[in-house]
Design a protein around this nucleic acid. Sequence first.
DNA 1: ATTCGGACCTGAAAGC
DNA 2: TGCTTTCAGGTCCGAA
Length: 275
Amino acid sequence: MPELPEVETIAADLREKLRHLEFSRVRIRLRKLIQGSSAKVAFTLRGKRILSVVRRGKYILFRLAGDWVLAVHLRMTGRLRFVPKSIPEERHTHVIFEFKNHPYELRFVDSRQFGHIRLLKAGQLDCFLNLGPEPLIISAEDFIRLTHGKKKGIKALLLDQRFLAGLGNIYADETLHAAGIHPRKKADSLSPTGLLHLHQTIRRILKAAILARGTSVRTYVDANGSAGGYKKRLRVYGRAGKSCRCCQSPILREKIAGRCTFYCPTCQDAGEEEK
DNA sequence: ATTCGGACCTGAAAGC
DNA sequence: TGCTTTCAGGTCCGAA
């Protein structure tokens, strides 16, 4: 569910609140969400202090004392909520992290149970995450270079986390529309100028979405339970049949790269080799 | 080397 | 109103 801007929003909020806190009891209700031994994870976390909370791709990483990292992926419906212990638990609360001398607890809530949590040593992190570069960090030159020789459709490539880490279905569609690129266009058929523009567009849209605290299309809310403000700014996602805000053509909806895809057939030119 | 369908789950929304 | 079907911000796997 959450993509880079939503995960960044959650991580930033938790960063303020959790830094320096020390885990005490960890209650794991649904063991399959924990990769590896849940008993070992609960045992190892106890007494560990949180040094920082960062985002990498769509992962939230809690860097802990002793070179440990707690990696959380929310997948479609996962949510992290930092609330007073007295607040009644909502349905699908699967893991509860308590902290030493603190009246709040961190709850992992996930109705579809797709999310997962893993505790690992910092040295194993890159191998485990297996992610491409951060879209807000990679340079235009590197972005163009990495695209070279990639034959798949540009939308499929943008969704590939080993190519670029953090874009999902909403922002792939939004960036391709803003850049005027048809989602089926083969990645290596884009001109350097087109790729440069796409790189800039990805940066611009992700930054704007982070500022707006993400997009709430259905179930996403931040760690405080608030919706994201970028929904109002969506130009194609979820707007099938409505008119394009640039050219008035009706927005199309098609399955591309295995995902429901929204695009404007006029603004997003497939170019010479339309497919 | 890609693309596709299905799997993993639950529940909201749409369809009848 | 109520039952059924479809679909979902993600990723992995196996088959075509």
